[in-house]
């Protein structure tokens, strides 16, 4: 059983929090998926299978050269930023 504290710790690493009820729902979900993954681990021959990470091998892909073909303007880059200071994204001081 994964404790609520442990889940809160994972949430913290992901930089967000949830309320108590949400952690309880998540605890139930963890129980389910871990049980299902336990069964998967017991499947015959599973360890001999190479994990699949991509739908099928791509044979036509060639590396292209790293060339600058398009650039965004400073205005475009900052267009969605709420806090700007002299063409830069403003954040609190990191070093006091």
């Amino acid at each position: 059983m994964i404790t609520k504290e442990k889940l809160k710790d994972y949430a913290g690493k992901l930089m967000f929090d949830m309320d108590d009820k949400e952690y309880e729902t998540l605890q139930q979900e963890f129980e389910i998926i871990l049980k299902q993954m336990d069964l998967i681990e017991k499947m015959e021959g599973i360890k001999e299978v190479e994990p699949m990470t991509f739908p099928f091998p791509l044979t036509h892909v060639k590396w292209r050269k790293d060339e600058v073909t398009e650039e965004l303007t400073k205005e475009e880059i900052l267009q969605n930023t709420e806090a700007i200071d002299k063409d830069q994204v403003r954040v609190p001081k990191v070093v006091e």
């Binding site: 994964i2 994972y10 949430a11 992901l14 930089m15 967000f16 949830m18 998540l26």
Partner: peptide, 18 residues
Amino acid sequence: RTKGFSELIKRRFILGSY
């Protein structure tokens, strides 16, 4: 991130991180 994401995807992200 706490305010921006709803409950469902927060739960999915924690599962993913684990």
